[in-house]
Design a protein around this nucleic acid. Sequence first.
DNA 1: CTGTTAGCGCATTCAT
DNA 2: ATGAATGCGCTAACAG
Lengths: 398, 398
Amino acid sequence: MTVTLADVAARARVSPATVSRVLNGNYPVAASTRERVLRAVDDLDYVLNGPASSLAAATSDLVGILVNDIADPFFGIMAGAAQTQIGGPGDGSGRAGGEKLAVICNTGGSPERELTYLTLLQRQRAAAVVLTGGAIEDPEHQAAMTAKLAKLADAGTRIVFCGRPPLPEGDALVAALTFDNRGGGRRLTEHLISLGHRRIGYVAGPPERTTTRHRLEGHREALRAAGIGFAGGAGDPGTPEGPAVPVGPEVPGGPDGTGGVDDLHGPGGLGSLGEQERLTVHGPYDRRSGYEATLELLRRAPDVTAIVAANDTVALGACAAVRDQGMRIPQDVSVAGFDDLPFSVDAVPALTTVRLPLFEAGARAGRLAMGKENPPPGGIATIAAELMIRGSTAPPRG
Amino acid sequence: MTVTLADVAARARVSPATVSRVLNGNYPVAASTRERVLRAVDDLDYVLNGPASSLAAATSDLVGILVNDIADPFFGIMAGAAQTQIGGPGDGSGRAGGEKLAVICNTGGSPERELTYLTLLQRQRAAAVVLTGGAIEDPEHQAAMTAKLAKLADAGTRIVFCGRPPLPEGDALVAALTFDNRGGGRRLTEHLISLGHRRIGYVAGPPERTTTRHRLEGHREALRAAGIGFAGGAGDPGTPEGPAVPVGPEVPGGPDGTGGVDDLHGPGGLGSLGEQERLTVHGPYDRRSGYEATLELLRRAPDVTAIVAANDTVALGACAAVRDQGMRIPQDVSVAGFDDLPFSVDAVPALTTVRLPLFEAGARAGRLAMGKENPPPGGIATIAAELMIRGSTAPPRG
DNA sequence: CTGTTAGCGCATTCAT
DNA sequence: ATGAATGCGCTAACAG
């Protein structure tokens, strides 16, 4: 029924081993024999049995790419870019040469699924795994990830982080490409401050993700440097915990829909950390969250003159909310995003944001996963984020 | 070094066969033994060897999802949805139970890579393959695809189409979910006509894709029904071939950058098919193409009062071009898209478009691939497209 | 440069 | 309900 290597060998009048060598191409074979074998392969329409091959060789040609949400272009762009380096640029032969099979795994942001996919990949003896996007900072999960990745690395799987900080106790076996989220966040807020904004709302991502934390830290660094919002000087501005109120389906305030507006007054009104927290609302990285968080922000502090969103998608939701409240962008309220996704330049007005070279980073991660490129010194490379000033930010009124 | 089934068996004091039966769960095993085995598995941190398992069983737990461009949310949404049905909803056990490994394969729209991925999947003895998005209508490629898919089906791989018409000689073995692109396109243009538009430009996708053709056919159906642009009555409105000029990197007009403006005059000015072709410009499904094609359109026919784009992404580019020409949307020119991607509602003005239930379709395709759902009668289901009227379309001036 | 010989780790017959 | 034996299809030493 199904044609095997042996069948090809018989037809080409060579040994199975020779056929294998021709197919894998990593061994000297006489040109004439090679040709004979290839013809037999074509004649018989032979297709290599991947599992058998992987079993014998103890490695497979699978490369896993883990993403939090493949419907989000942030991940789509990185994953697609990585795949261009892994799936082979299509040698045109159509015969599927030495390329590996890049497989994108959508975790949906769930820690369990992240681990499950890692196990599945481990099962398949994946050649490499690329982990993209922000990591979850839950210690338990981090420990589990560290252990799992160590096992994968042990088994010869190459591990690459892309847009994600390396694990605390990460082995030197991994290469990490990390975005300068903190620096980008800082420069963005510096830009707003330089325009004259003093009351700046922040629509943050989910509290437990590194990306969220770093961007928020950058934001607060800029505020503090300008002497805004931290006169009280208390607390660590880098910690998004505290009274900052989440928004979205998992609102802990209960099903009453109020979003859990907290009645915190803080020690000293404007100038305290409490004040900054009051101007920060957390929620998922999606449009709806941006919309709702912004409404909440506007309710809490009707005098904000600018809103910084966790990313461009959230910023779009923020824009919609601002408009629905009858305010204009940027005349009444400035809005800024993060990532510079393709649609951001087409927003009206065009979105001021921080550009992350997602495609380049993804491609580089792909190359690292393939061993085509040497890891950066120390295993970690920080990728610069570029401030893109556009029409959605302007000086505040008055 | 690496722990195998035999190791687990030894520790649990049972035979390897029993361990296998416990793990696969499809065989009667005494509860007490099962427990002993599971404990051994945990103690030893055993992970099944996928390749070995697949080799012995002659099947694997891989499901391939082919997409044209994973950076495009159109595909990201469908692929992510499919994966929710395949990767298992995360049973929370973290132990990777019966789920399959859904792998997204990014073809970049290249026919060669499409076939290459299919071969790779065939190698892996994939359990199922989901093909998403428009197909390429090149006869040679279609024949190759038909042959390849037949072989896959032969080998027991389930084939599912999602948002893609079935192959001409497609076996009954495949299930197909196809979008009503033609109907959606027709209703969209009917909407514009009912607003009073008579000169409507069309920014089409790549000429060789089914999606492009069907949407364009719907558009022309509506025009013809209204007696617009086909007074000549000649030619098949369904054929996007002819003098319609493509735009983008692969402009055949040469490197002169003129975009190959054709000097076609047609037999009878307004009212001929030639006129409709003059109002149609083809290009890739991306923003830049939408921008450039629209400039070209405006150059050819400065009196168009509406522009229909092949999809929302292209429509965004079209909007930018219209604005850069100093015209307002929708007062001077109406613009419409297709797909209703998440960002479309946030465009300013919000984009009139045709909603495709991408998530639902993707999820259903995933279920079909898993055999969780029965194929529709006849193997083909057409999914309705819903017209979404928003602010970007309005009656023409005057 | 090519053929021979052994497994790789597991799922399955068969027995029991 | 469990154990023993066989082979899935291929690659990787070794010869030669």
